[in-house]
Design a binder for these strands. Structure first.
Length: 501
RNA sequence: CGGGGUGUAGCGCAGUCUGGCUAGCGCACCUGGUUUGGGACCAGGGGGUCGAAGGUUCGAAUCCUUUCACCCCGACCA
């Protein structure tokens, strides 16, 4: 019987499958607070690993961490017109600072604030305010700051990790003396994100620029990395914004230049969030549960002792402990192999499925028979069948196996994207590409469509009924000419279009 | 905020139309036993103010009114 670990399967009900993965892998669950999730230890460990790698990359590129307030005075948010409009509708507002017993025995807010405070949806305005104080001379530039924090956006519809009212992220904010330097920073951080996505998450991404309609409110240019999920929808996995002088002018971030004159700084901001966990899930996981790329897995190897009789216990446990110690001394990706012994009181099969669902890359089963032969029973998360291997060989090869799995996941994800990316030259073809054959129960369809287009309201209007959006115009493209499939106008821009999260 | 739907044990549900024994089932959980290189089997057991408030009635999970929450589809979005 081909029983899958997860029900429904991806092809039966993709969103349902996603929810089950999050649940079965014990990553997170809904909280009593609407739209806010509880990230459980296994999910948080994954996020911590992502943080550690990214943090190192930010520091290597000359950024420093700092922390700014959770609350932003309402007036700050009002300074940049587009910014206000972009975020106003989804802000949580603090209007009181105290609770008093009410007439019905409950508590009622009291002590109204003179100026309401907004729970940060992003921190451009408050960080910009501080930048204005810190920057006086061109010698104070560039200023390159990052903060790890939570933000709140009061979303209408939420899904664990992909869109929650509160989420964890990092936001980088930099100020530069010249436009060129700020543009370089914007591109550099997009490269950092792409490197992280591909080399650590094993998730291939397309780097590109957002169209005007998809741009960050207040930005002159937004760059993003876009990944294809297994249902062929696009997920924006990270953004890097060139803010021009919009925020510096709104917030008076100016400096005295080398010539003695006064100039406004050029600023950037960039961020990735816990959404990356969702991206990771939808890129690699299968119908048996979570699949983790080894480089980010909280644990690489789980050792499951097989004990049939009580009198075997001591010997088996001792062997497992020594094996764990030996494996822990092996290096993988610049760190120790993370290994643990699962001695929980579960039946063998149950224990095995527990770790499959949680995506532990390698399972080792160790029983008296294996001990006698000094061999191990090895289960790889990326292969359906387990196999025996001498202990010595496994210890020697474990690092290599993990790296092979890491690469395998990337290759598989890249193949999915390549196979489902199509160059499309007519609107008719475009429409059929994005229309399910069975409308009542739409099958997985579509993908990335590469098309010549002109970024204009007319184009956007034609996309609306198809529920397709321009994802980006890829940064590495040849400047060839073509005809916009929407408007028929000549153009040199080719974009990627897809349904998206 | 518009349109649709659902609230019954930790999870998934039946029962509601047509009011009537002590509110059920599967999974999970606990205990005992038999098993054990694989998501076991048998027996026993614990757990519910049927989303909330009010009403109708001899009697309400079921009918009526009000209300709250959540889910799906839109609009909005990392």
């Amino acid at each position: 019987m081909a029983k899958t670990g997860i029900s429904p399967t991806r092809s039966e009900d993709y969103p349902g499958w996603y929810q089950q993965i999050v649940r079965s892998a014990d990553l997170a669950e809904n909280s009593p607070v609407r739209g806010c999730m509880v990230i459980k230890p296994w999910g948080y460990a994954l996020w911590e690993n992502m943080q550690a790698v990214l943090d190192e990359m930010f520091k290597e590129t000359g950024h420093e961490n700092a922390y700014f307030p959770l609350f932003i005075p309402k007036s700050f948010l009002e300074k940049e017109a587009e910014h206000v409009e972009g975020f106003a509708k989804e802000c949580a507002v603090v209007t009181h600072h105290r609770l008093e017993p009410g007439p019905d025995g409950g508590l009622v807010p009291a002590g109204e604030l003179e100026e309401p405070l907004i729970v940060r949806p992003t921190s451009e305005t408050i960080i910009g305010h501080m930048f204005a104080k810190w920057i006086e001379s061109y010698r104070d530039l560039p200023l390159k700051i990052n903060q790890w924090c939570n933000v709140v956006r009061w979303e209408m519809r939420v899904r664990l990790f992909l869109r929650t009212a509160e989420f964890l992220w990092q936001e980088g904010h930099t100020a530069h003396a010249t436009k060129e330097e700020a543009l370089d920073e914007t591109r550099l951080m997009l490269d950092v994100y792409a490197k992280f996505a591909e080399e650590y998450m094993a998730m291939p991404v397309v780097k590109g620029e957002k169209t005007e309609g998809e741009r960050f409110p207040g930005a002159d240019m937004t760059l993003s990395i876009e990944a294809m999920m297994q249902d062929r929808k696009a997920l924006q996995a990270g953004t890097s914004h060139f803010l021009g002088q919009n925020f510096s002018k709104a917030q008076d971030i100016k400096f005295q230049n080398a010539e003695g004159g006064e100039s406004y700084a050029w600023t950037t901001s960039w961020g990735v969030s816990t959404r990356l966990v969702g991206a990771l899930i939808m890129t690699h996981s299968d119908d048996d549960g979570l699949v983790l790329p080894p480089r980010l897995a909280p644990k690489h190897v789980v050792i499951c002792p097989v004990i049939r009789k009580e009198e075997e216990r001591a010997e088996v446990m001792e062997y497992c402990a020594s094996l764990a110690k030996e494996l822990g001394g092996v290096q993988y990706d610049g760190k120790r192999v993370a290994v643990f012994v699962d001695d929980s009181d579960k039946r063998g099969g149950e224990k095995k499925w527990f770790h499959i669902k949680r995506g532990v890359p390698i399972r080792l089963e160790v029983g008296p028979r294996d001990i006698k032969n000094d061999s191990l029973f090895v289960g790889r998360r990326d292969q359906p069948k387990s196999f025996g291997m001498p202990r010595v060989e496994f210890v020697e090869r474990v690092s290599e196996i993990l790296e092979e799995m890491q690469q395998g996941l990337f290759d598989k994800a890249l193949k999915l994207r390549v196979d489902n990316t199509q160059q499309i030259d007519s609107f008719e073809e475009f429409k059929s590409f994005f229309t399910a054959k069975n409308e009542a129960k739409p099958e997985v369809h579509g993908g990335f469509a590469e098309c010549y287009f002109v970024d204009c309201p007319e184009t956007d209007a034609m996309l609306v009924p198809l529920k397709v959006t321009p994802r980006c115009t890829p940064v590495d493209q040849d400047a060839e000419s073509g005809i916009c499939i929407f408007t028929g106008k000549p153009t040199q821009t080719r974009g990627i279009f897809a349904k998206s999260y």
